[in-house]
Write a protein that binds this DNA or RNA. Structure first.
Length: 598
RNA sequence: GCCACCUUAGCUCAGUUGGCUAGAGCGCCAAUUUUGUAAAUUGGAAGUCCUGAGUUCGAAUCUCAGAGGUGGCUCCA
């Protein structure tokens, strides 16, 4: 975590420490139980995590969720035994003896011995002093396993030793643990709620998007309603950008390999780009996986003076990346997508102002959706300098610069070592949604590498040629990812301005069908997105369907309304707003439609 | 790409050791009902049981291969 972050965060970290201790201890209870049930297994390793804990086992038996009750029963027995977690410091020789039959543990032992560090183990010790498990572990742990108030095993999955697919596949068991049953119940409720909000489920139910085996995996097809939401999101960002002197450009879906060779993407990502073949030339071409290289060529299309800068180019073009099949998932990871992309070419002395404006625009958009957020400062992996292009001195400067920018703008941030792009460090926005889940959306990068590689220049006041700085910036990140996050954030109940259908008119019976048609026509003329439910269903059924579709407003139109010339309004979520005139209702909806803080 | 699991009507799913002329609810269509704030009644249509090959007298069910999906791993410009 970061040095900065305010006091609240630091305090949270302390209570987090207690939770981590508890989960770490629960993890020992898990592998102690597993050893009893599967005597031939070899323990690999496992940590406590933000959500719970997991442990990797090397075992011949197949473990499935059907085995969880038996394992949980054994775990409960151990917790009830009131065993103590006893720390022991030992020498290398003894460690080697204890873990001789376990190649995973031996690997650790060798590594720790290599660093000349001390060994510590934790013994699961019954009140009568009998040791039922000993594991190489630096701790810390709870003193007694009985402090684990509530736990649950969640899932089982395969995982490679050290995450390397050349190694043996181990069995990973996930679980979670809390100090109290209430906390566990709350967590399980959240999991359940997240499942209900799953954008893949809602996307189908609400007819927003679909996939086709014939079109291909990871290639989303938006139906009219989904296309509407997607378009509305990009229009929103576009309107925010246009107000700040950003200009939209239009660029092709393909480009020659030379472009990506110059940018460095070819060397780095060739295997993840779709190759395009021409019938008439041998030129190697690719579907573009990002916009930056093409935007450099718009900059390069004419001579630039220091007076022309900054040049702010935005682009919503479709991008294509040949992701591995196992990595695709709903709209969260796709092979065709678009970013709300922007590249700002500016002088070094303009960078701070441009960034502050970009951060303010981002704040406006995040506030509109009600996202709290912080930034991750994504820096180089210090152990692998070869992964990055450009002058290390410039990297050092820019990485420090990012900290100043966060401080200046009073934005909470934390460090993300090894998360930088190959050409620049990143300031990545991590938003927290309605369920407390975190998603990476925006990104902001100060790039000295691309302008140099493409030899972009401008003429300064003294007639000298200089490289501009290139800022890369996205607010929502990608439209598809934003769709996913917003569908789940709102649980499908979009605000009025994002709703494909804002109002459903419900005639009480066929007698008021003509009146309903008139109302619908008038609202459409006022620019509202209205639908008429002319099904032969009962009113109750129509309301039920309207609620299920998450439409913000329902108009109940019966003989009462036809006579008075008014409409009865029901807002989604069982809110009866009574009757009002059509113009009052239209005004109300139009006001909400404009509510987003553009 | 690797590991595990999954794929039956538009959707959600049932289908017992291979015997199926493959079922249910919702949805859809039709008729009756003309409905007042979260599900009217009755009837009907609808399936290359993901695809291909194999085993078998016989395959939704077993085997192999492929496609797609889910949960992980790895990756994410």
């Amino acid at each position: 975590m970061s040095k900065k972050l305010d006091d609240k965060y630091i305090k949270m970290d302390e209570s987090k420490q207690d939770t981590l201790k508890l989960r770490h201890t629960a993890e020992h209870v898990l592998h102690t139980a597993m050893q009893k049930l599967y005597p031939n297994l070899k323990k690999a390793m496992g940590p406590a995590t933000d959500e719970g804990f997991y442990f990797d086992f090397d075992l011949d038996d197949k473990v499935t969720e059907a085995d969880f009750p038996a394992i949980e029963k054994e775990m409960a027995r151990i917790i009830k035994s009131e065993s103590k977690m006893v720390r022991r410091e030992i020498e290398a020789d003894e460690a080697k003896k204890i873990f001789a039959g376990n190649p995973y543990k031996m690997e650790w032992v060798e590594e720790i011995a290599g660093r000349g560090e001390k060994f510590s183990t934790y013994q699961m010790t019954l009140p009568n002093g009998k040791v039922i498990d000993e594991d190489l572990c630096s701790g810390p742990h709870l003193d007694s396993v009985s402090e684990i108030g509530a736990f649950k095993l969640l899932s089982v999955a395969g995982a490679y030793w050290h995450g390397d697919e050349k190694n043996k596949m181990l069995t990973r068991i996930y679980g979670t643990a809390f100090a109290t049953q209430e906390e566990l119940d709350k967590y399980m409720w959240q999991l359940d709620e997240a499942k209900k909000r799953d954008h893949r489920k809602l996307g189908k139910e609400m007819d927003l998007f679909s996939f086709s085996d014939l079109v291909g995996s990871g290639l989303p097809l938006y139906s009219p309603k989904g296309a509407f939401v997607r378009r509305k999101l990009t229009e929103f960002v576009e309107s925010v950008q246009a107000a700040q002197g950003y200009y939209q450009v239009w660029t092709p879906q393909i480009a020659k390999a030379d472009l990506f060779k110059t940018s460095g993407h070819y060397d780095k990502y060739k295997g993840d780009m779709f190759r395009v073949v021409s019938n008439y030339s041998d030129e190697e071409m690719f579907l573009k996986p990002m916009n930056c290289p093409q935007h450099t060529q718009i900059y390069a299309a004419q001579p630039r003076s220091y007076r022309d800068l900054p040049l702010r180019l935005t682009d919503f073009a479709m991008l294509y990346r040949d992701e591995k099949p196992g990595e695709l998932s709903g709209l969260g990871r796709v092979r065709s997508f678009s970013q709300d992309d922007c590249h700002i070419f500016c002088r070094e002395d303009q960078v701070d102002v441009e960034i502050d404006v970009a951060l303010q625009m981002t704040k406006k958009v995040m506030d509109t959706f009600g996202f709290k957020y912080k930034y991750r400062l994504s820096t180089r992996d210090v152990d692998h300098p070869e992964k990055y292009l450009g002058d290390p001195a410039v990297w050092d400067r820019v990485e420090k610069w990012a900290v100043e920018i966060m401080e200046r703008n009073n934005i909470p941030y934390y460090d993300g070592p090894g998360e930088a792009a190959f050409y620049a460090p990143k300031m990545d926005l991590v938003a927290t949604d309605a369920l407390g889940r975190e998603w990476q959306l925006s990104t902001l990068q100060i790039d000295y590498v691309m302008p140099e590689r493409f030899n972009l220049v401008y003429t300064d006041q003294n007639g000298e040629q200089k490289h501009p700085v290139m800022l890369h910036r996205a607010i929502l990140g990608s439209a598809e990812r934003a769709m996913m996050v917003l569908i789940e954030h709102y649980a499908g109940a979009f605000p009025v301005w994002l709703s494909p259908i804002q109002v459903t008119a419900l005639p009480v019976s066929e007698k008021t069908m003509a009146y309903s048609e008139k109302i619908v026509k008038e609202l459409k003329e006022k620019g509202l997105r209205v639908e008429l439910n002319s099904d032969a269903d009962s009113l109750g059924k129509k309301i039920r369907n309207a609620e299920a579709s998450k439409v913000p407003y329902m108009l109940i139109l019966g003989e009462k309304e036809a006579e008075s010339g008014q409409v009865s309004v029901r807002a989604r979520g069982q809110k009866d707003l009574g009757s009002m005139s059509l113009s009052d209702f239209a005004e109300k909806v139009i006001k909400e439609d404009k509510e987003r803080s553009v």
